[in-house]
Design a protein around this nucleic acid. Structure first.
Lengths: 107, 107
DNA sequence: CTATATACGTAGTACGGCTACATGTAGCGG
DNA sequence: CCGCTACATGTAGCCGTACTACGTATATAG
């Protein structure tokens, strides 16, 4: 897949992967790989700043915990993040409809 | 729709709208509005540079003609542009599958 | 004779994901 | 014990690209 066609959809991915569970950054990257059958391999330099941005925006909340000596910052969706996720999903549907319509429809 | 979620997909749109017909820049903008039910209203400052870029890349060829006093630069797909369009369509399918899979699948 | 629609184009900005780098621990193989 | 790999978080700076804001010009309607 083209490198950064993600533009504008990264937030949706991050919110979606946190829907219903708490994960730390590293685990988020792995979860995205898993769910995409390896198609998504986001670099840490992409994910970590994005998570902080989403937290600043109030969509995520984080807390530190320590697992076998290693520090982790674990993220979860806030109420507002849930709403944002729903909005992102709706927008994704609209987006694919519009672009898909132009790309597919020969008429 | 979010302003620039097009990022990375504009080329596909332009190639697709020129599939099987010749159009000039202004008409391309109108054609995209039409095909998207008004959802896509690309500014000229987005479209014209993109067309020139695609021509430099060899995907489009253009020629000047004059219609009722007004000069138009009319674009058409090259052979290479046809192939690029096919590639863009394939990539679009993959893209929507991957992102849609992550967004949709709660599993 | 002015306003609007048609038509093309450039310059400069802003955004956001990427590359490259910096830091540190745990656990394994040798 | 030493070094390598996996785990884990983070920053600084780059770069592509779509956007905003302009500038130019003709035909047609009012």
């Amino acid at each position: 897949m083209k490198a950064d066609s993600l533009r504008g959809h990264l937030d949706a991915l991050l919110l979606a992967v946190l829907d219903g569970r708490k994960l730390h950054g590293y685990a988020i990257i792995e979860a995205l790989q898993l769910r995409s059958d390896g198609a998504l391999d986001l670099p840490t330099g992409t994910v970590y700043p994005a998570l902080r941005r989403l937290e600043r925006a109030g969509y995520l909340a984080s807390e530190w915990d320590v697992v076998s000596g290693r520090k982790r910052r674990t993220y979860r969706l806030t109420r507002s993040g849930q709403q944002a996720l729903a909005a992102e999903r709706a927008e994704w549907r609209e987006f694919t409809t519009v672009i898909g319509g132009v790309l597919g429809g020969g008429a």
